[in-house]
């Protein structure tokens, strides 16, 4: 963990990594929006990524600083959205039951698209934070 102003690079990088991981999970959900088979059996269930704040226990203590400074975010784990998916009629489908109904994955492509936009904006915001930090450090070099 970098010290002083350099620590912000680690913080923003952790944010970028987290958003990128989220993007991967969203892409995986969209790719499997029509998968009716999985290793565990049954249709694909959408994956959800869980983020968690990293607390700054190893922070360099600034003189006269009161309170804690966080140091970024990390992926705490992946979960499964276990809600049932829609059942649609597809006669002749290999996974159809005797009534011709197939349980589809519970992926809603529109929801995924929206999550993708938030992930993208989040990523961009972190990039902006890094650019600002760079500007600040370059200015400090002029002292």
């Amino acid at each position: 963990m970098g010290e002083g102003i350099f620590g912000t690079f680690d913080i923003s990088a952790s944010g970028m990594t987290a958003e990128r991981v989220r993007m991967n999970v969203i892409a995986h959900n969209i790719a499997n929006a029509q998968s009716t088979r999985t290793e565990e059996g049954g249709p694909y269930k959408r994956r959800v990524v869980v983020f968690e704040e990293v607390l700054g226990d190893a922070q360099r203590r600034l003189d006269g600083l009161i309170g804690d400074v966080g140091c970024g975010v990390r992926v705490a784990g992946y979960g499964r959205d276990t809600r049932p998916g829609p059942t649609i009629e597809m006669r002749g489908h290999p996974d159809a039951d005797e009534n011709g109904m197939v349980e589809m994955p519970n992926v809603n492509v529109i929801d995924e698209m929206m999550d993708m936009m938030t992930a993208m904006r989040g990523y961009e915001a972190n990039v902006t934070a890094i650019s600002s930090a760079k500007q600040m450090i370059l200015k400090a070099l002029e002292i």
């Binding site: 983020f51 966080g70 934070a129 930090a133």
Partner: peptide
């Protein structure tokens, strides 16, 4: 800056 960067990193 660090604190704001942390807020941004935790936007989600």
């Amino acid at each position: 800056h660090k604190v704001i960067a942390n807020n941004v990193a935790n936007i989600n």
